[in-house]
Amino acid sequence: MNEIVWSDIVVQLITFAILILTIVLIVLAFRETIKRSKQIDNMPIIYIVIDIALILLLWFVLDFIGVNISYVVPNLMEWATKFILPWIVLYWLIRLIKSFEKK
């Protein structure tokens, strides 16, 4: 029993290390882009890193609790595209129409 638990922990740690490496590469790419453009502030990078860290934390917490991520995430995406995305599109469409009316 202990061997199975340790092997699961090792797999989770390897997955976590790969995800951290991916985050680091993304942050380095954003920093390089900012250095080249000089128009963007450093704050968006901090927000991106915080968002990625929160998503990873949620991913590992849900996996640790026993929630099947491969079932939950696609269902959440389907629900969001059916119910939330049309409202967002409608909001921006109304703003576009109002901006045309002002001109």
Rank of each mutant, 00 (worst) to 15 (best):
N2V: 07
E3Q: 12
I4M: 13
V5M: 09
D8I: 06
D8G: 08
D8V: 05
D8N: 12
I9S: 11
I9H: 12
I9K: 12
V10E: 14
V10M: 12
V10H: 11
Q12Y: 07
Q12G: 11
L13P: 00
L13S: 09
I14R: 07
I14L: 08
I14G: 04
T15N: 09
F16A: 13
F16M: 12
A17P: 00
A17R: 03
I18C: 08
L19C: 04
L19D: 00
L19T: 01
L19N: 01
L21K: 07
T22N: 08
T22P: 01
T22G: 09
L25K: 03
I26H: 05
V27C: 04
V27S: 02
L28C: 06
A29Y: 07
A29F: 06
R31E: 05
T33A: 15
T33G: 15
T33C: 11
K35D: 04
K35M: 06
K35Q: 12
K35I: 03
R36S: 09
R36G: 05
R36L: 08
R36I: 05
S37F: 05
S37M: 11
Q39F: 14
I40H: 01
I40A: 05
D41Y: 11
N42H: 14
M43Q: 09
I45C: 00
I45G: 00
I46H: 13
I46P: 01
I46W: 13
Y47R: 13
I48E: 08
I48L: 15
V49W: 04
I50E: 12
I52P: 01
I52H: 08
A53Y: 14
L57I: 15
L58R: 10
F60M: 12
F60Y: 15
L62H: 03
L62T: 04
F64R: 09
F64Q: 10
I65Q: 02
G66W: 01
G66F: 02
G66V: 02
V67L: 02
V67C: 01
V67A: 02
S70M: 05
Y71E: 10
Y71D: 12
V73Q: 01
V73F: 10
V73N: 00
P74M: 01
L76M: 06
E78H: 13
E78F: 14
A80Y: 11
A80T: 15
T81Q: 13
K82N: 13
K82E: 14
F83Q: 11
I84M: 10
I84C: 06
L85K: 09
W87P: 00
W87Y: 12
W87G: 10
I88R: 04
I88E: 08
V89I: 15
V89E: 05
L90R: 06
Y91G: 02
Y91S: 05
W92Y: 15
W92F: 15
L93H: 04
L96N: 05
L96F: 15
L96S: 07
I97E: 02
I97C: 03
K98V: 06
S99I: 11
F100K: 15
K102W: 07
